[in-house]
């Protein structure tokens, strides 16, 4: 059940090297200017998606499942943006 201003998505990291420095930077940049709060969860570990250190230290390798939760007026936009980057393998491979 999604309530207004809340959005959630599940994604599998597909690019070979996983969510390393460059993809992590792209991810943070893609949502940094949005108003909503965004959290990323990997196997119970939760990180602030606007923190480059948080995203990097999730150490999400190829095949990891990420749950993205966004809360705020532009929540849907945030989940979409992250989903798009992941499915496009961050332009790698």
């Amino acid at each position: 059940m999604s309530k207004p201003g809340f959005s959630e998505g599940r994604f599998i990291i597909q690019n070979e090297l996983g969510l390393h420095a460059r993809p992590a930077m792209l991810l943070v940049q893609s949502i940094n200017r949005l108003q909503c709060n965004v959290l990323i969860e990997k196997e119970g570990l939760v990180a602030d998606a606007k923190s480059i250190m948080g995203v990097l230290t999730l150490a999400a390798e190829q095949g990891s499942e990420l749950i993205v939760r966004a809360d705020g007026p532009d929540a849907e936009q945030a989940v979409e943006a992250i989903g798009k980057l992941i499915s496009e393998k961050f332009g790698e491979d």
Binding site: A21, V28, Q29, S51, M53
Partner: peptide, 16 residues
Amino acid sequence: FEVLSMHLMLLEDRMI
């Protein structure tokens, strides 16, 4: 250049 962009992002990182 990538390294420097990373540094700029870290300067805005909430966790720091």
